[in-house]
Simulated assay, not measured.
Amino acid sequence: MSDSDHGRRTIRDVAKAAGVSISTASNALNGTGRTNAETREKVKRIADELGFRPNALARGLLTKRSHAIGMLTNDTYGRLTLPMAAGVSEILVDHGVSLFLCATNNDPRLAKLHLDALLDRQVDGIIFTATRIDLEPPPELLKLRIPVIYAFAQGPADSVSFHPDDAQGARIAVQHLQALGRSRILHITGEQNYLAARLRADAYRELVGSSGQVMFGEWSEEWGHSAIDEVYSQSGPKPDAIFCGSDEIARGVIDALRDRGISIPDDVAVVGFDNWEVVSKQTRPPLTTIDMELKELGHRAGLAILGLSRGEKLEPGVERLPCGLVVRGSA
């Protein structure tokens, strides 16, 4: 019994079982050299039967690639990043590439530590993602010699970036409410210093005109609740529909309306933004909302980083991916 019977199988075991030389077995498994299709398939089948796993470091030395991608994020809770990471992984796994996800918690020191670790691992590229599309990345990213893709984050002018189309998402939300016959549509949203909030507010104003009102505040249920208190403490016509800048704001809005005995959607229809299902499905009634299609955004970022890591040229700029409307019970 050989030493390899007691532990990890080696390329020598595969070559012996296939009746080929070690170099032929290596070429067949790595897709290098001149090996006919029949031999390649035979070697791969025997490697699978033996449970042989190629040494990633040795493979990287042969191909000059680590077959790994880093994903750096400031999203501590993963609400935005995890759906994107799932989309990236679905693309990478089909190409034998691993994804390393690192959260910085908005700590520059931790961001540098993670980045150094990814570079030590010799990743083939990095995807930077964040909790807002206008967040500037760690300055160290701008100096790297490996490809960097920006997803739901701001990159330099010569980079490739992917964002949800916030303006288009706002338009389909407002158009849905207008199609329901609602004419007094109020927009309650988050902080005005967020680019996404301004893009959505501008698109809302384009559709509702001078009759529209935008209320900026925090990205929280508490703000949604207090905004309704403010609206109903004033005289004048009340809204028959409310477009909210996030699902959390929408849940606060709905709770505040119900506290006042206002029926949803009969008296006031409500649409959120995010399709954060932990919130949107548990709201009563379940929340009609805009889905930013984060998994698809991850797919696109994954394809882009794969292409760049293989030396392909991509057109720089921001690509905005369309959002979708998820209709539930609130509108």
Score class of each variant (00 low, 15 high):
residue 92 L to C: 04
residue 25 A to H: 08
residue 72 L to Y: 07
residue 104 T to K: 07
residue 125 G to P: 00
residue 59 R to A: 10
residue 86 A to Q: 10
residue 88 V to R: 06
residue 38 E to L: 10
residue 101 L to C: 02
residue 88 V to C: 05
residue 15 A to W: 08
residue 105 N to D: 15
residue 35 T to G: 04
residue 65 R to I: 02
residue 10 T to L: 11
residue 76 T to H: 00
residue 85 A to D: 11
residue 90 E to K: 08
residue 128 F to V: 01
residue 120 D to L: 10
residue 52 F to L: 14
residue 75 D to C: 03
residue 42 K to H: 05
residue 74 N to C: 10
residue 14 V to M: 08
residue 34 R to M: 10
residue 18 A to S: 14
residue 86 A to Y: 09
residue 107 D to T: 01
residue 118 L to E: 09
residue 108 P to I: 03
residue 129 T to M: 07
residue 42 K to V: 01
residue 28 A to E: 02
residue 74 N to I: 05
residue 23 S to I: 12
residue 24 T to I: 13
residue 128 F to T: 00
residue 62 L to S: 14
residue 119 L to N: 13
residue 109 R to N: 15
residue 29 L to N: 08
residue 25 A to G: 14
residue 102 C to I: 12
residue 63 T to S: 13
residue 129 T to K: 12
residue 100 F to S: 13
residue 114 H to M: 03
residue 43 V to W: 00
residue 133 I to A: 01
residue 92 L to G: 04
residue 97 V to C: 12
residue 29 L to C: 04
residue 30 N to F: 03
residue 24 T to A: 10
residue 58 A to M: 08
residue 89 S to H: 06
residue 118 L to F: 11
residue 9 R to Y: 08
residue 16 K to M: 01
residue 116 D to N: 14
residue 45 R to D: 08
residue 120 D to Q: 11
residue 8 R to A: 11
residue 11 I to W: 02
residue 86 A to C: 02
residue 106 N to Y: 03
residue 3 D to F: 12
residue 19 G to K: 12
residue 59 R to F: 03
residue 47 A to K: 04
residue 103 A to M: 10
residue 42 K to R: 15
residue 103 A to K: 14
residue 122 Q to L: 11
residue 61 L to W: 05
residue 69 I to N: 05
residue 7 G to M: 11
residue 116 D to Y: 13
residue 29 L to V: 06
residue 107 D to H: 01
residue 40 R to T: 07
residue 127 I to K: 03
residue 65 R to Y: 04
residue 15 A to T: 11
residue 107 D to M: 00
residue 132 R to G: 06
residue 43 V to I: 09
residue 99 L to D: 02
residue 121 R to S: 15
residue 66 S to L: 07
residue 41 E to N: 13
residue 9 R to Q: 15
residue 48 D to L: 06
residue 84 M to I: 14
residue 42 K to Y: 00
residue 39 T to E: 09
residue 87 G to P: 00
residue 28 A to H: 04
residue 38 E to F: 06
residue 61 L to K: 06
residue 134 D to T: 07
residue 3 D to T: 06
residue 64 K to S: 07
residue 31 G to L: 01
residue 127 I to P: 01
residue 45 R to H: 07
residue 81 T to S: 13
residue 20 V to Q: 04
residue 64 K to I: 00
residue 63 T to D: 00
residue 5 D to K: 15
residue 85 A to R: 05
residue 98 S to Q: 11
residue 105 N to R: 10
residue 47 A to L: 00
residue 84 M to C: 03
residue 100 F to G: 05
residue 78 G to M: 11
residue 80 L to Y: 14
residue 54 P to D: 08
residue 75 D to V: 01
residue 22 I to K: 13
residue 61 L to Q: 02
residue 6 H to W: 13
residue 73 T to C: 02
residue 10 T to V: 09
residue 63 T to E: 05
residue 51 G to C: 06
residue 16 K to F: 00
residue 5 D to F: 15
residue 112 K to M: 13
residue 120 D to K: 12
residue 25 A to N: 09
residue 107 D to Q: 02
residue 103 A to C: 12
residue 119 L to E: 14
residue 99 L to F: 03
residue 85 A to H: 06
residue 111 A to S: 15
residue 59 R to V: 14
residue 110 L to S: 01
residue 22 I to M: 12
residue 77 Y to P: 01
residue 126 I to L: 04
residue 23 S to F: 06
residue 123 V to L: 08
residue 18 A to G: 09
residue 58 A to H: 01
residue 67 H to A: 08
residue 48 D to C: 01
residue 130 A to C: 02
residue 96 G to C: 05
residue 40 R to M: 12
residue 125 G to V: 04
residue 19 G to H: 11
